[in-house]
Design a protein around this nucleic acid. Structure first.
Lengths: 329, 329
DNA sequence: AATAAATTATGAAACGTTACATGAAATTAT
DNA sequence: ATAATTTCATGTAACGTTTCATAATTTATT
């Protein structure tokens, strides 16, 4: 005799309802069966509190309804936002997510890809740095912010247009002498197009500009040193700064204020990403906002779409400007 | 004949290595077999690039190595941090995470619990609000920040001690007239002990204090109105404020500055949580820091430990004070 | 009313793994 | 050298689904 506390299976439901196994399967999957059969099965399901075993389903279908998300971390606000919207887009389609926090480490990225394939995920979405990541042919992959060859679609903001927009905005706000600041690696990824876009915008609007790559890290010294170099008689030689991320903008603004320069009165600062310190609060700084919900939706769409032949190699999504208190408006 | 591109199974490995199916299983699971057998199997695995099908494993073992995390969202910094550390603690133990963003909605919480049980998760960690969440007897559950009866362990910061610490710190910093501000629901959860702890601290240190519950939302009006009520001849009647979260502290500080009150010169503000706008930057405000990594580790430990009998109903972890520019030090 | 055609429920087989009873081989004891 | 014991590979059954060929039933046709 069957134990009271064992988990009911389709077989149990079939016996309870007095129908065949296949009939229960059909009811569970919404395939039409005779009215009386359906009702009897539905009653039995309720009575036994039956729930399908998704692992048996996964085994049979060799489809797991799981995708892996490779992301440097889930704490940094931009990544946290991506995780949130990708998770949402997946749950909407009854997919679940295997969250892989890679710490931007190439070896970890590769490990997680291998692990994900072992778990038979239906696909991988990755914001990765490993230039020669090995991915099995039959594992669908969508990249974020980095092109990985023509076979793998890449989704990103329109970073070039974003850079251009920043330059134009600074010009509109009365700036004449601007700077572009960047930290981090010179990896050939999409966000690096912000620089080219900004340069292009400066040229077309007749702004004089300087491009500067700063060392990364939390040390403000580097920033202070750079800024001090451009202060003459208490005045900064720039009246506008475009930072490659809001994070950098935040640090630069802190440094500027420490040096008794007023933001936005003396110098206006625009960042990139669209970060708020908390949900529903103001932006950290005036910024070029990335369309994170749309990026997430696009990634999931591209990953799960069947017609493999027509996948575009690069999808750029439109960015917008948002005021955040560090520009005149 | 088997298709070239079909995914290899244990059977294929067994045929390739010229051994029995069970032998391959043993090798894969690290169960000792004869040296020569092991080597042959390992070679075959490499040659065929075999990977175990975790869904077949899951079906057989009725253990899925997946746990569900129910959390209001994954964008708000405190939650993002929890997600990060819980994910880490799980991956360390070869478990994967099903991330369920509930939007603090009671119905969604229940839906996700049901869904998680359908997916046969090995357990659930939940930061939930639904007072009568239905959880199956045989699904291990660990709650964060809210006691759900003696059968379900709850992990939280030592919120009472945190409130006390805030009061003591304000007293140490020279405050004599302080306020406690809170928004949100009066649900009987752990964070609400911050108030009692603060009150206790005020009494023991002889601080005169006021407790105030504000309406939630992004509307600053409520805050402005409350603060304006306590301004006489341009001076605020408080010299110290303890806010129930950093989020509230952030909004209050913005409002104070808008009203031309200086922080920390005129009034010192302490928040709760330990939020930074970006990784590696300063705290948003002076704050009582929650030990998120330890909370995460404790949740996972309690969830996965075998000796069910000895699960404590409540685990409180120690908090610390951190300077964040909105107090004298 | 009897037969042909269309509809629909049935139940066995298969998915890839693990566990266990079986039997073969190797070791030790007599 | 043979018997008793231990060791260890083998192969089958089972996990809970879905699919599909088959059987049973209903409906349409003569």
């Amino acid at each position: 005799m069957k134990s009271e506390h064992s988990i009911p299976t389709m077989k149990d439901v079939a016996k309870e309802a007095g129908v065949a196994l296949g009939t229960v399967s059909k009811v569970v999957n919404g395939i039409p069966v005779g009215e009386s059969y359906r009702l009897r099965v539905e009653d039995a399901i309720k009575k036994l509190n039956y729930q399908v075993n998704s692992y048996a389903q996964g085994l049979k279908a060799s489809k797991t309804y799981t995708i892996a998300l490779l992301i440097p971390n889930t704490k940094e606000p931009f990544f946290a936002s991506l995780v949130y919207y990708i998770n949402l887009a997946l749950l909407k389609r009854k997919y679940r997510m295997l969250l892989c926090s890679t710490d931007s480490d190439c070896d970890q990225e590769q490990e997680y890809v291998t692990m994900a394939q072992q778990n038979k995920v239906d696909g991988i979405i990755g914001l990765t740095y490993n230039p020669n990541l090995q991915i099995e042919e039959n594992t669908p992959f969508v990249a974020i912010d980095r092109s990985m060859g023509t076979k793998i679609p890449c989704v990103a903001s329109d970073n070039f247009a974003g850079g251009q927009l920043a330059a134009e905005k600074l010009a509109d706000l009365g700036c004449t002498n601007v700077a572009f600041l960047r930290t981090g690696s010179s990896l050939d990824n999409e966000p690096n197009k912000r620089k080219a876009g900004f340069e292009n915008g400066c040229l077309s609007r007749g702004l004089s500009y300087e491009m500067k790559i700063l060392n990364d890290g939390d040390a403000y010294e580097e920033f202070e040193y750079f800024l001090a170099e451009h202060i003459h008689y208490g005045r900064l030689s720039f009246d506008g700064i475009f930072c490659v991320t809001d994070r950098l903008a935040y640090l630069i603004i802190k440094t500027l204020r420490k040096l008794n320069l007023r933001v936005p009165e003396d110098v206006q600062v625009i960042g990139f990403d669209g970060i708020r310190p908390f949900q529903g609060t103001d932006y950290v700084c005036s910024t070029i906002v990335q369309p994170v919900p749309e990026i997430a939706e696009m990634c999931v769409n591209l990953l799960l779409q069947e017609n493999i032949s027509s996948k575009p190699p690069l999808v750029c999504l439109p960015v917008t400007y948002a005021y955040g208190g560090t520009t005149r408006e």
